[in-house]
Design a protein around this nucleic acid. Structure first.
Lengths: 332, 332
DNA sequence: CTGAAAGCGCTTACAG
DNA sequence: CTGAAAGCGCTTACAG
């Protein structure tokens, strides 16, 4: 194969132990020897073999991340941030894309951690199968749930308060005068979708608005989903005065439908989305939305996972970050 | 640590060699022994350790992919497809996000391949530094350029014909009657941007249209870039009759600007984008665009890289796939 | 069909 | 400050 630690040792005239010490930056090496080793490494273009180190040390320096998709704006931001933070710490990201359905999630995770390919994993894919999480926990394998949490299970997670976000979004619509406020949900396999819906409902309740039949529509985090929901409302003659869309894609669909049917926004229809997608600020009118602290979630997640890996976690933590409202033109 | 091959061997009453044979599905194992081993593995919940296998076999089963961003629709599609194909083959994807600037690209690659963390890498980040590629080549490390190629260097690549795409997009605008056709470029660090521009220029030429001063605007693959370019043209009073936007984000910005300034599309302004982003079909009018075969590129790329890794590549191949035109409402 | 032995390339006590 | 030895968990000829 290529050059190994013995080649370096020979060239430098020291033992491999000394070379190893230099590689790992240990202080207890005579300066002259360190210099010789460094030179030998340089000349031979030597790099320590990761597999050998992994085998000897017991950890890989790689972290797995299981996400349902990377084509979603928010997901990709979180993944990109996670990668950045890991890179800062000299670690690598192994990406596995997998829906959250039991089997698929499990097979992804399994190979990743059972074969000890990574030191820990982030799970962004919706966990539908509690047993699986329990198995991970039982096996004592380091993991952190990202963008979701389990309120009934003692598992570590970092997520963003979707209940609060849904509440704020809805409250904003109500504040601008709407009483008939609709909600187009996200895919309901996600906890975030369910929480946003709950926040919406609570905001109505707190403002003494009775939930009107039919004003909660199914959606799927796509523009076409948002568009269809609006057309359905129009067809039924129950289009609300304001719509809280589960994400910006959905909001985008709502606005396109509004254009198609010549419904003035925000005069006749207020809209608020979720995610603060770059498009939202460019649209006319600009789309009001809820911004999620993706970077913060990623950074917190990495810190937490690292602590768990190092075994220095006193007790399970569930961090829940706050989203913020970004007001633009679609809410008057 | 956890259970290893010796534990299994002991439990099954055979040697580790036999266990190894069973793990690797070799045929030369007595059925009764295979059964015993399988049972022991099951009971002990044994999984072979990836680092040990890597060290012994000399390959990792992991592939690196270096991309400039995962927040771009096309890039994320390619990455997702690559991951899918790799997973089908039992391999893992190590993702590194890095701009293509020499140093950063190099440090990403270096760690990934020098430390033998992966068996090969895909490079999607624009290669600006030829020397680096040459070094990779010299070191005989398996790699494939994705979504770019080097015409003057003998390096393997799989890309999509951006020259052709740019040509087709422009020809389509001309066919619909426009003579004054503008182009808003993509970020010029990408070869794709440069090729699309060239295709645009060639299409003008073939249709005997003189390139008018100022009708090629800088862009950056963002909606706001597209919007700004249009506003600039309007301010100068030279808004073209048709615009080839370097991607759908840019086209989106163009259309928003058109709305803002009340310019009828496609009556007064035809627009064509690039990528076939999901939004394009929803927009009113639907955005005409160029669709790129991302899946095919990913699949071809993986096949090629695998062949290179296995050493069964006779000679360097540069595959160039064809994009296709998707006509919707923004080109009359 | 089966197994003893060597080897993959490091790190980690341990002794000096 | 330095190094001999053992060990991390597999696979691969080789011999039987």
């Amino acid at each position: 194969m290529s050059v190994n630690i013995y080649d370096v040792a020979k060239k430098a005239g020291v033992s491999v132990v000394t070379v190893s010490r230099v590689i790992n930056n240990y202080p207890n090496v005579r300066d002259s020897n360190r210099k010789k080793v460094l030179e030998a490494m340089q000349e031979l273009n030597y790099k320590p073999n990761a597999a050998a180190r992994t085998l000897a040390r017991g950890y890989t320096g790689m972290i797995g991340l299981i996400a349902p998709s990377i084509e979603d704006y928010f997901m990709s931001r979180v993944i990109a941030c996670t990668e950045t933070v890991l890179k800062e710490k000299g670690m690598f990201l192994v990406l596995s894309i997998s829906s959250g359905t039991g089997d698929i999630l499990e097979s992804s995770c399994t190979k990743l951690f059972r074969e000890a390919r990574v030191d820990g994993i982030f799970i962004m894919s919706p966990v539908l199968d509690m047993e699986y999480i329990l198995a991970l926990k039982k096996d004592n394998f380091p993991f952190v749930l990202l963008d979701q949490h389990q309120s009934d299970l003692q598992v570590p997670s970092v997520s963003i308060d979707n209940y609060h976000g849904g509440y704020q979004a809805t409250a904003e619509l109500i504040k601008s005068g709407a009483r008939r406020v609709g909600h187009i949900c996200g895919s309901d396999c996600y906890e975030s979708s369910r929480q946003r819906l709950k926040g919406y409902q609570k905001a109505l309740e707190d403002n003494h608005i009775n939930a009107e039949d039919g004003l909660v529509a199914k959606g799927d985090f796509t523009a076409s989903g948002g568009c269809k929901a609006v057309e359905e409302w129009i067809r039924k003659g129950i289009l609300p005065e304001a719509i809280f869309a589960a994400d910006d894609n959905t909001a985008f669909g709502v606005l396109e439908a509004a254009r198609k049917y010549n419904i003035a926004v925000p005069e006749k229809l207020s809209v608020i989305g979720y995610d603060d997608h770059p498009f939202t600020s460019l649209f006319h009118p600009g789309i009001s939305t809820i911004r999620q602290p993706a970077e913060e979630m990623a950074r917190n997640g990495v810190e937490l996972l690292q602590d768990i890996i190092k075994g220095k976690v006193k007790r399970i933590t569930k961090t829940i970050l706050k989203p913020s409202v970004v007001l633009r033109g679609t809410t008057s």
